[in-house]
């Protein structure tokens, strides 16, 4: 059961990080928020995104044998980025959920 928990954690962090990475692009930010973003904000989102991807890799490694974890992680990245792209094209404002005010001041 703990293995499944770690896999879910890996999936969620991958999704979250891809969301932050997408928002760190000015063009996607504008799809989600009315005001434009500040440079440090975008930088912070980008850093959080990359860090999150790392966390998701660690979660995958805890769940499985390393050889399997690599495959799971790479495929999760694909799924997460596709999901974020679809959210951005259908319901972009949903991404406000992953930007609490203390994290993104301009939201």
């Amino acid at each position: 059961m703990t293995e499944a928990m770690w896999l879910i954690a890996a999936m969620m962090t991958a999704l979250l990080s891809m969301g932050w990475l997408a928002l760190s692009y000015e063009s996607h930010w504008q799809q989600v928020f009315p005001k434009s973003a500040s440079k440090p904000e975008l930088k912070r989102l980008k850093a959080a995104g990359w860090a999150g991807l790392l966390v998701s890799a660690v979660c995958s490694l805890v769940a499985d044998h390393p050889s399997m974890a690599v495959l799971v992680w790479v495929m999760l990245l694909a799924l997460a980025s596709m999901t974020i792209a679809m959210i951005l094209s259908r319901r972009p404002t949903l991404l406000r959920m992953i930007c609490p005010p203390f994290f993104v001041a301009n939201a």
Binding site: M18, L21, A22, Y25, S27, H28, L77, A78, S81, M82, I84, A85, M86, L88, S89
Partner: peptide, 27 residues
Amino acid sequence: SEFFTFRPWKHVLRSSLDLHNITGVVA
């Protein structure tokens, strides 16, 4: 810069190029 970009509301050529790119690139 178009890693997360899919614009289904645009014309067929643009939206299918988006989909072609994104499905090719993310996976």
